[in-house]
Design a protein around this nucleic acid. Sequence first.
DNA 1: TTGTATGCGTTATCAT
DNA 2: ATGATAACGCATACAA
Lengths: 334, 334
Amino acid sequence: MANIHDVARAAGVSIATVSRHLAGQRIRSTAAVDRAIAELDFRPNTSARGLRLGRHNTVAAIVPDISNPYFAQIVRGLEETIAPAGLRVVVASSNEDADTEVQLLNRLSDAVDAFVLVPAIESDATKLALERIALPTVLVDRVLHEESAFDVVVVDNAAGAELAARHLAGLGHTLLAIISGPQTSLPGRIRHEQFVAAAAEANVEIPERFRKIGQFTQDFGYEATRELLAEPERPTAIFVGNNLMAHGALKALNEAHIAVPAELSMLSFDDFALAELLNPPHSVISRPAGLEGQIAGERILHRLAQPDAPAVKRILPVSLTLRASTAPPPRTAP
Amino acid sequence: MANIHDVARAAGVSIATVSRHLAGQRIRSTAAVDRAIAELDFRPNTSARGLRLGRHNTVAAIVPDISNPYFAQIVRGLEETIAPAGLRVVVASSNEDADTEVQLLNRLSDAVDAFVLVPAIESDATKLALERIALPTVLVDRVLHEESAFDVVVVDNAAGAELAARHLAGLGHTLLAIISGPQTSLPGRIRHEQFVAAAAEANVEIPERFRKIGQFTQDFGYEATRELLAEPERPTAIFVGNNLMAHGALKALNEAHIAVPAELSMLSFDDFALAELLNPPHSVISRPAGLEGQIAGERILHRLAQPDAPAVKRILPVSLTLRASTAPPPRTAP
DNA sequence: TTGTATGCGTTATCAT
DNA sequence: ATGATAACGCATACAA
């Protein structure tokens, strides 16, 4: 690849002049330099510029699972808002693993200007790595510690879980089950706790055997649902903590030929593409994934311009999208 | 951040010794250097190393749409196979736009060692950019030109489309419709052409008004299906060219209260998460997305080790996953 | 085995 | 407005 010396030689000027032109300063020989740049197909070397400047015009987005469309939408929202500012985003996946996450953070730390991180779990190692690295960072969807020194963009998980519990209890269900993600992650924990609490407030106690806690995966959703269905006394409604687990739950319900919502109601967190096309259409707590990414992008932009602005926490609203997967419980016990 | 000089000073050696230790050479003062590295939390600067070495231990994956789970799976497969070799992958999305794609290629070209590219369309600009850049590149899922100088990993689109056409024709359908992606992309074109050709071979001619060509998006799938349903004489079976368009088609069918497969059969390319949970379960041509990524990774590894190995083209098999969205056509015309 | 010195390509400082 | 040059952090050729 041609370098700045080649361009300078071709244009008959010094490298300083070329560099100034690149930086937008007025120079005498604009035409000649432009021609040389075009002819030689010169593009400034990223590594050299990064080394010299310490800036890279890049933000890294680290998500727990790149194949979860929900995270993909966050990334798209981020991309949309920072691209106009000349920043590119590179995405990397921690695969829900804290060690991988820390490695990624470390390896990328001197190649990017900021991080948008969806943490795998609330890991102290991650928190420490981030503090050492000391780049502008916004935590999205999950956090690292209840009170955080980082910018945070989350949704109102508590409100969502309460909405779900009240809806189900309001329908008359007294045998509620819940399938939750890791309690070491904010959405996993808050959704679980608040659903249980809101149910209790509506006078329905959720027995231990109806509380399933595991991973945010389709597999866990499937297994947990099967266990629930194997109970001598089945729940009449299930609340599921995210989209992937809901896929698994749906599969288990389908295999067991459970009539939804006639025999059993189901409600889950996170909307998904085909929810309205299922039979019956699936009710969900939906949240604005793209918007989460956009706001994260705005925070990054703001913090890049103003490095020691105080940390900000944004809580985005969720809503209950009622379709047809919930109904009052069946009249008679099996 | 601490640099190599700091470490050298702390350990009482020269920077060369530290550098050698980093490179795995034996040095006398291993313990002291290791301690200094740990205490100072030293990590070699990526930009400096990249500038000096011209290598970055990074491969860039550029996909048309990061929120399409199909591409996410390709990325995961890639990640799996190259991570053990110490390579990281950064993902970027071209949003199905050739200009964005070229920009991404250029901007990343001096920060990565190789590209895994799923091209947006068959763009000469992209082809030229890639040739100029001259990094190891493997094209996945789509190509840039029929005969390529790049490594290529694709699936057998022709076989898939023929499978689909023969299945539908074999059921007795004579009014077939097809919804296809851009003819400027390999999967869009091959699936379209081969489906039409295989149908013709089975003596069913697909009229012009039953051939819808557009984008690989849910929106286009939806619109095209609505147009099809608005025809005075409707098709009795529809073949849809990818997962996103299938989502749209499903939505249109659902809204119009079309009974599938009683009134109309549907078959589409690409399996998707909830296909088996729809009513009826949806039949698809499925392809090994993760495997595509893995093989791409192997090619990258191979080519990094052996830069001028001849270009290789891998064609992966597809299969017909029959569920319940197809059936013989209804007896009587509407 | 170790240290010194050079260069990778760029930006910025300092003269001019 | 322009040019020569130092410096960013690292790896290595060369000398010891």
